[in-house]
Design a protein around this nucleic acid. Sequence first.
DNA 1: TTTCCTGCAAAATGTTTGCAAGGCA
DNA 2: TGCCTTGCAAACATTTTGCAGGAAA
Lengths: 153, 153
Amino acid sequence: MCAQIRTMAATKNEDVRVAISQNRITDSGLRMTAPRRQLIEILAESERPLSVEDLSQRSKGKFDLVTIYRNLEVFRELGIVEVILLENGKNLFELTGEHDHSHHIVCRHCLKAERIEFCMGGELERYASSRGFSNLSHTIEVFGECPDCETKG
Amino acid sequence: MCAQIRTMAATKNEDVRVAISQNRITDSGLRMTAPRRQLIEILAESERPLSVEDLSQRSKGKFDLVTIYRNLEVFRELGIVEVILLENGKNLFELTGEHDHSHHIVCRHCLKAERIEFCMGGELERYASSRGFSNLSHTIEVFGECPDCETKG
DNA sequence: TTTCCTGCAAAATGTTTGCAAGGCA
DNA sequence: TGCCTTGCAAACATTTTGCAGGAAA
């Protein structure tokens, strides 16, 4: 029963995140369409950040890749999703967390990602600022093998 | 004259870096060829990290793109070059500095990059380790507009 | 002389653009 | 209705693979 409560809570939380995302779309004067709704739901339900290809598969190829690319770009502009840049230059997408952006420990094998709760970006950007740089942003990601993959591999 | 001494010192330093890189190749049983020699020289002389396309242009198209790709991969494996992963997923290459790897403040416009001398990777990897992850690596880069580009732009 | 390396050609990937038809508000 | 979105097709950019000839050691 304890597990059941947790499941319910998790579901609720998902629903909230979906609703928030959808509001951002309609509040921006954009339209809520089937692809947008489903892509957001898939991201909300996912246990890990997803690639464009992942999203295509999980939506059963119902939507053109172009549609996925274009909507992820819209989502990114609205702050609905964050992008995780992998070592190989590829992108993963996940719904934005509490903060405007976060960093991750990403498993190279299963691509599961844990958010790193402390962000050292401030210190880095302060340093960059002292060197005369402006309009700053930063990327920080850690890659490794997660406990699950390690025991399997 | 002071400037002249500095120039000479800089040239010397370049030569040393070229020599070190070349040694790594021959010590590995690989061959020193014209493309390898020139690519290393171009990287050594460059005022900023270079893309594959940059290297192609600076070598006046003398070498096939394939050759550049393949050699950069060899250089990376030998630790001769480091890769800087830009926000857009593209790569820049520079000769490895004192340390095995470093992080940078990269100007979005001119792509000049300053090495960040303090690496916070240790702390990050210690945290990842405590979460059960192994075989760790990390990326940290800061992006902004450098003082030169700011005044121009 | 052996093995490595290069260039060419072609294929494979991943992403973007233009446009006409369709659908949300 | 009006404008936003979608899907299709094609273009584009980037990187990889296979193979035969050429070069370093």
